[in-house]
Design a protein around this nucleic acid. Structure first.
Lengths: 237, 237
DNA sequence: GAAATGGTTCGGCCAAGGCCGAAGCCTTGC
DNA sequence: GCAAGGCTTCGGCCTTGGCCGAACCATTTC
């Protein structure tokens, strides 16, 4: 089979601890330099450089030169979804040693970005709240935004494209759909897809949440607390 | 990060050519013996045995003893989705050498099973037809079955569960949703999720398609040709 | 019970590849 | 121009892990 070699190549690229750490760090969608990535992966810059060269050659990562820095980011949403799905399988297969979860892990479990949307306890709570308030409906396969939900998103000023792909001949207005994404820490779905992305962006721009240090973890601001409670009826996130 | 090691382990399990070949073969959802898998992966049985032990230990594969045979299958739909997503990235990153595609590749591109649903040219044509006939609507994130579609599936006798997860307190009738899955050979979406699964099953039980030899490739029977034309208005698959 | 067949375990060989120190390249800043 | 900092390339070390031959175990069949 022709595609088999490429498959193994991609998978093995993600299968090295050093590279896995770097990909993990890139999962929040931001662009990082080789040295930063070396730091999070616990390897020297020259080793990281080699790995990054492989990742870019394999099409998982793209680089962008800027001055004397080279910024690396995930090459596409497809790569992010792939990493997501691997994390899901990994989470399912390793329920071992809950022995010690460090503070960083705790922060990540509370709230984090997952490429372009929110995950962790906050992400799941948000999805739950939208379902409970009748603003979205979720099944295991997909989700749909209800009229109430569309109104809410409109009120918040989210830019959502309700267009649906039509076979040939142009587009047509249709229902807004969203993608559920099983959370590896909570084992419950959170919101991904265009709705998840738009919502996440809005939370940042509105100042409801902000990144912790330079990690994927996010913290809810007092303003966010208030708005999550008033708008979504979420308590104590 | 605690989960990082598990991530790398899972990814590297899929990253070996031998194991990748076996996983690839298991993608149609059937259970195969170690020797059969050794054959498709081009390795000796004892090597395959070792690999399979790793795969089961890693939670990607489950075994089922039956007489002197041990049947191996993918451990969960999550694993299948993971493999799917890796294939997608691999297909995107390796547009090299379209040089020579063997006859087996051609058959796979025409029609194949993808864990529990249909893919390849047939799968995409089916999805296109359903969209064109107004029976489903697809966006990049998700899909929805229209009233017309529900009527069709009902007429075909598909067992579909229209229940939607509600937050707490029981379930509620809702819209039937489905998951689009980007086809790695066609680069266009086909139908996955519960709708894709039910449709695929029906095609087999109704005798519209059948497996070629012992591969993932499927062939359309004359009866299938007729029904695809009459019911879905698909010509010449 | 002996032969056959599917499957696994053991041991040793070997290539692939990760790792880092040292050195070199390139851009920026003084 | 010179120094500093980000990054890569090179060379050599060393572990990891895939691979197969051979022997071993288990189930079925005659």
């Amino acid at each position: 089979m022709a595609s088999n070699a490429a498959f193994a190549e991609v998978a093995s690229l993600a299968g090295d601890p050093g590279r896995a750490g770097m990909l993990h760090a890139l999962m929040d969608g931001r662009a990082l330099t080789a040295t930063e990535l070396a730091g999070v992966a616990g390897i020297t810059p020259q080793t990281a450089s080699g790995h990054l060269a492989q990742l870019t050659a394999g099409g998982l990562v793209t680089v962008q030169q800027q001055g004397r820095h080279r910024y690396h980011r995930l090459a596409s949403p497809a790569v992010a979804r792939m990493l997501e799905s691997i994390m899901q399988v990994a989470a399912g297969s390793a329920p071992k040693r809950k022995a010690f979860v460090g503070p960083r892990d705790l922060a990540l479990r509370a709230a984090r970005t997952c490429y372009d949307h929110l995950a962790g306890h906050l992400g799941v709570a948000l999805a739950d709240a939208l379902v409970a308030n009748g603003q979205i409906e979720l099944s295991g396969d997909a989700g749909i935004v209800t009229g109430k939900g569309a109104a809410l998103f409109d009120r918040l000023g989210l830019e959502l494209d309700a267009n649906i792909h039509k076979n040939g001949s142009g587009k047509r207005k249709g229902r807004m759909l969203c993608r559920p994404c099983l959370d590896w820490s909570e084992r419950r779905p959170h919101l991904a897809g265009q709705v998840g992305r738009a919502l996440c962006r809005h939370c940042f721009t509105a100042g409801w949440i902000k990144h912790v240090d330079g990690t994927r973890a996010v913290a809810v601001t007092p303003k966010g607390q208030r708005n999550f409670r008033e708008i979504f009826r979420i308590e104590g996130v």
